[in-house]
Design a protein around this nucleic acid. Structure first.
Lengths: 404, 404
DNA sequence: TTATTTTTTTTGAAACTCAAATTAAATAAT
DNA sequence: ATTATTTAATTTGAGTTTCAAAAAAAATAA
């Protein structure tokens, strides 16, 4: 049965020393005990005790004398790293036409990458579950694994959902609303499953695998079919009062503006979403000239004034939406992710410049803007990151009451 | 010297049991040990130990047998409460034309309320410091107190500032930018001083004195001369990457819209701020008809179409801005505070309804909207709340290493 | 070889926390 | 009145966690 990993509120905030040490090791990749002590401000004595427990539990391991920052003399430091073999993890990204699965070890190293097609559109929950099981089993087979060897599976999908409860309010992959999809899946799979919004998974991937030094506060904006957002505060995904997180795509950028999929007017998505762009381009030109964004983008490159105007406005609206997020959140970094960004009209210097111009200035740096034109595989890796984090937390909590 | 109370990051999150117990007592007003144990999920044994320490330190006291929830029989519960005499606290609100000072005891009960006029406009830092000292000394005199008896002073002012460093980036009360006003004041006062944005102080007041049950996530929007915002996440004030918090008034609600004080276009404040309303009303009517909001509001009541249109648009823009905050933050509650709200055009049912209409719907309640038409005195009380919290945290941290 | 340096481990004590037992202080029952 | 019962608060003893200081380990420099 999928194990519920809902923590009590105070536990969530109060990160145990064990977890801190483990996180420090993962963040560094390889790190000696003395450096863990320095980074976490936990005493060397305690670090020794904790790492001994974690090694005994098989979660981390020593690696041959640390080459990196070797001191001239003295006892050489012994680096520690996550033990990749500790667990096998699966991450999945549900997109419009495919399920992409990535099986990784506990360090996040890729073991298997696999993709199966989806009929497209919104599926029946049972049908989707079967597809997910198929995707998982085929991936396992490809890696010579049994399904039961997978310690955890995380699934990322577009839509509004409460990750703590694995509850999907709405998703573009499902034809029903308000479904306890976690329990549903549990009838098909007996391993722990975690479901989350895909933008949050990008955030998780950045937290776990990103180069970020101390980027505790950042915002992820995804642009695919729609526009999504993930917010990280204090190294934790922020999920509002109802647990379903931020709806950046439906922030309003124009009073009584363009009609959105959601039925409201003036949503950002109604200006920058691909369907919105095609709608406008085709309505204004009168004929169905553009079947996809590539076509529209090519027209703009070819000097088509209509196309240019449409894309430019999208860029300005996007800049305005981002500026609002910065004015409200003041993040250290904004990460733009998604395949649509490859077209560049939302991530151009012009857009970034316009965003910066619209942010109230104080002394201090404006947020860095980074762009990732992620393919499906990287989204699946984000999902794997989520599962790794959840399973880590579970196992680390089990490492208690060990005799020294 | 004003003592810096900057905590390390992990300490900030990791609330000690002592602090939890203390907070539970303050939240309840009066509460028996057994109930503290229940509320905090700390064992009765530990609650006994901790409350003994707090009593020894003089921070709390027992009150005669609890009348409230008396059980039929058994040993009667003994309620505990904050010891009002433990500390004397001062809170100040700097507004355009006055400094309002409130001296309270440690429970927040008013001892002295006092106001001195300000010349208005932006002052020289030295001049403002002198005014603050005057305000404090006169208030002390009025209450028969010595300045040194004040354990802490919190000052709320409009503008952008970093409360952790007592650093003011910009304030409508000061004629210089980027000033370490805390150190400045320390030359005039030798008691601990805390400076914060006034919207955050409203949030603190709500946290400390509000009826809120478990409102861990809420947003305060203040409307006075400008528009301010305070964000509370997990019972803590959220201060972005640069420590200066949210700039709701400068979120953009219109591409290339009305010109704002800040030099940018389309800011919310440029549509709902009092100066913006008067500007528009007077420009459109051609003559200087309205000298203040009261006049404009009266005109609208009298059926003036211009006035009505101006105020209506302000309301719609405000609703749009609020909706954006809800879409991004998903707070449990929105608290509208400020004298301007008395005019009602920003807090009408129509505005609230429009805001709700603009929020993406999921199953689950939309945020409650509450309105406080606070006068200066209540702002000062918010400041006092801030000082009480800071001083509490300081003293509680001192209560360590007591023998049982 | 010996001294020095640096990392890691061991050791002993302090601080916290809690379960279980005990004590305290009331009412209900006899 | 006295005893039983009930509920709150406290004490006790033990288990964890953490750290400072001391000791041990493992290298290089002299």
């Amino acid at each position: 049965m999928a194990k519920s990993v809902k923590l009590s509120h105070s536990d969530e905030l109060r990160e145990s020393s064990r977890q801190q040490v483990f996180d420090a090791i993962r963040e560094a990749g390889q790190i000696a005990r003395i450096d863990i002590a320095q980074v976490t401000r936990i005493s060397p004595a305690t670090v020794t005790a904790i790492t001994a427990d974690l090694i005994a539990a098989g979660l981390i391991e020593e690696v041959s004398p640390d080459i990196s920052r070797g001191a001239k003399r003295g006892r050489p430091r012994v680096a520690l790293k996550i033990r990749g073999d500790a667990h096998t993890i699966a991450g999945m990204k549900l997109s419009h036409h495919a399920i992409t699965t990535l099986i990784t070890d506990f360090e996040g190293a890729e073991l298997v990458c696999h993709e199966i097609p989806l009929p497209g559109g919104q599926l029946d929950p049972d049908a989707l579950c079967e597809k997910i099981v198929t995707a998982l089993d085929e991936s396992c087979a490809q890696g010579g694994l049994e399904r039961q060897q997978i310690s955890g599976l995380a699934i990322g999908m577009a839509g509004v959902m409460d990750a703590d409860r694995n509850f999907v309010y709405w998703s573009s992959s499902l034809n029903v609303r308000n479904i306890d999809f976690g329990s549903y899946l549990a009838r098909y799979l007996s391993i722990p499953v975690f479901i989350d919004n895909d933008a949050n998974l990008v955030a998780k991937a950045e937290l776990l695998f990103g180069e970020g030094d101390k980027r505790s506060n950042f915002v992820v904006v995804t642009v695919e079919h729609g526009v999504g957002m993930g917010i990280v505060i204090d190294n934790q995904i922020y999920r509002g009062a109802r647990g379903c997180g931020a709806e950046f795509g439906h922030t309003k950028v124009q009073l009584e503006g363009a009609l959105c999929q959601c039925g409201q007017r003036g949503c950002l998505e109604a200006y920058v979403g691909d369907y919105a762009l095609l709608r406008e381009a085709n309505v204004t030109s009168g004929v169905e000239r553009h079947k996809d964004l590539a076509s529209l983008y090519a027209a703009r490159e070819a000097g088509d004034i209509m196309a240019q105007s449409t894309l430019d406005r999208a860029g300005r609206m996007f800049a305005m939406g981002l500026a609002n997020v910065v004015n409200i959140f003041d993040p250290q970094m904004i990460l733009l992710a998604g395949a649509q960004l490859a077209f560049g009209y939302l991530s151009s210097d012009k857009v970034v410049h316009e965003m910066r111009r619209s942010v109230l200035q104080v002394d201090g740096p404006l947020p860095e803007v980074r762009v990732h034109g992620w393919g499906n595989k990287m989204w699946a890796k984000g999902a794997a990151a989520h599962a790794i984090e959840e399973i880590s937390a579970l196992r680390i909590r089990e490492v208690s009451g060990h005799a020294v």
